[in-house]
C-alpha cells in the first residue's frame, strides 16, 4: 500500500533539502533554517519560552501568597517544623512556613529581571566601550582595552562579589549592577574585535571613498555589521548573569528582604536544613540550572548557526 503523501509536503521537503545549497539566502534566513531543525535549539527555546511565560504570569499562577506563612504553621509553631506536602501545598512549605511552590514560581520573576537587566546594562556598557575602541583605534583603543584586560583578568564572580560588597546596603539593584559590570569587558572585547575587522573592510573603504562622514561610517556602516557576535554573546551572558546573580544572593549579597522570593536566596536560606529537607535546595537549584541551560543551549546553537565558519 502506498503511503499517501501530499504533493505540498513533497515540494516542501525538496525545497528544504536544496535550501542548504542556496547561496542567495541571507545569513539570518539560512541560520533560521538550520536552527528550527536543531533539537538543541528547540529544547533551549522551549525552556526559555516556558520560563518567561511562568515569570510573567506567576502572580496569577501562584496558588498561595509567597510572602505569607501558612495558617497551619502557626499551630505547630512551637515545634518549628517545616510544613510537609499537603493538599493546596504541592511542595509543602519553606523554613518560615510559606508555600514553597508559590515561592518557586514567583522567584522566577527576580531571576528574569536580574538576568535581563544585568545583561542589558552590561551590553550597553560593552557597546559603548567597544565602539569607542573600535572606532577611534590608536591610544583610545589601547586605553580602553587595558581597562578591559584588567577586568577580564579577575575571576568574574570574585569581581561581582567585590562590587556588590562596595554597597553599604545590598539589594536587588546592587546585584544587577554588580553582575552587569562583570559582563562589560566581554562585550567590549567582542565588539572591538569585529569593529576592527570592519574598519579594513571593502565597504567601509568604499563609503570613505564617497566622502561619508566618520560618524555615519561608524554608526551606519561599521556598528550594524559588528553586532552579530555581540547579540549571540548576550544570550550566553544571560545564562552566566542568572548564575552569578543567584550566587551573590546565595552568599547574602542579594536583597535582604526575603518576602520577595529569589532562587539563589532560597538556596542560601536552607543550607542548615539541607540534610533533613534536601527538597528545599533541590528545587531552586534545579530551576537555576535548567534556566541557565536553556539560555546556553540557545546561545550556543545560535552562535554556531550564525558563524560562517561552522556552516555546513
Amino acid at each position: 500500500m502506498v503511503t499517501p503523501t501530499r504533493k505540498k509536503d513533497r515540494i516542501d521537503a525538496l525545497a528544504a533539502s536544496s535550501a542548504d545549497f542556496d547561496a542567495g539566502v541571507s545569513l539570518a534566513v539560512s541560520a533560521w533554517r538550520q536552527l528550527r531543525r536543531s533539537p538543541m535549539f528547540l529544547t533551549g527555546a522551549v525552556i526559555i519560552g516556558l520560563f518567561v511565560l511562568v515569570s510573567l504570569l506567576s502572580p496569577w499562577l501562584a496558588p498561595q501568597d509567597p510572602s505569607e506563612p501558612m495558617l497551619i504553621d502557626q499551630v505547630v509553631k512551637a515545634r518549628n517544623e517545616i510544613p510537609p506536602i499537603q493538599p493546596g501545598h504541592v511542595l509543602g512549605g519553606d523554613l518560615q512556613g510559606r508555600d514553597f511552590f508559590s515561592r518557586l514560581l514567583v522567584g522566577s520573576q527576580q531571576t528574569l529581571i536580574v538576568g535581563v537587566l544585568a545583561t542589558l546594562i552590561g551590553l550597553t556598557g560593552g557597546l559603548t566601550l567597544g565602539t569607542l575602541a573600535g572606532a577611534f583605534g590608536g591610544w583610545v583603543d589601547s586605553a580602553v582595552m587595558r581597562v578591559v584586560d584588567v577586568m577580564l583578568s579577575l575571576p568574574s564572580l570574585l569581581l561581582a562579589f567585590s562590587i556588590s560588597a562596595l554597597f553599604a546596603r545590598p539589594n536587588q539593584y546592587t546585584v544587577i549592577v554588580a553582575v552587569a559590570v562583570v559582563q562589560i569587558p566581554v562585550f567590549a572585547r567582542l565588539l572591538r574585535g569585529s569593529m576592527l575587522a570592519q574598519r579594513h573592510s571593502d565597504h567601509v573603504l568604499a563609503a570613505t571613498a564617497l566622502g561619508v562622514k566618520p560618524g555615519a561610517i561608524v554608526f551606519r556602516h561599521m556598528l550594524p555589521n559588528s553586532l552579530g557576535p555581540v547579540i549571540v554573546q548576550s544570550t550566553l551572558v544571560l545564562a552566566t548573569a542568572i548564575i552569578d546573580a543567584a550566587a551573590l544572593s546565595f552568599l547574602g549579597l542579594g536583597n535582604p528582604d526575603d518576602r520577595i522570593p529569589e532562587w539563589g536566596q532560597m538556596l542560601g536560606d536552607v543550607q542548615n536544613v539541607f540534610d533533613t529537607h534536601p527538597q528545599l535546595a533541590f528545587w531552586p537549584a534545579g530551576c537555576i540550572i535548567v534556566v541557565a541551560l536553556g539560555f546556553t543551549l540557545m546561545g550556543e546553537t545560535l552562535r554556531e548557526a550564525l558563524d560562517p565558519k561552522s556552516r555546513r
Binding site: H203, A209, L210, G211, N225
Partner: peptide, 29 residues
C-alpha cells in the same frame, strides 16, 4: 570625495554594506 572624485571598486559584493538597503546607500551620498 564622492562629489568631485568618484571611485568604483573591484568586488561589488564586499564594497556594498550588507546590512543596509541599496536605496539608503545611494541616497546617503
Amino acid at each position: 570625495r564622492g562629489r568631485d572624485l568618484g571611485m568604483v571598486f573591484q568586488d561589488p559584493l564586499s564594497s556594498l554594506n550588507p546590512v543596509v538597503p541599496i536605496g539608503v546607500q545611494v541616497t546617503e551620498v
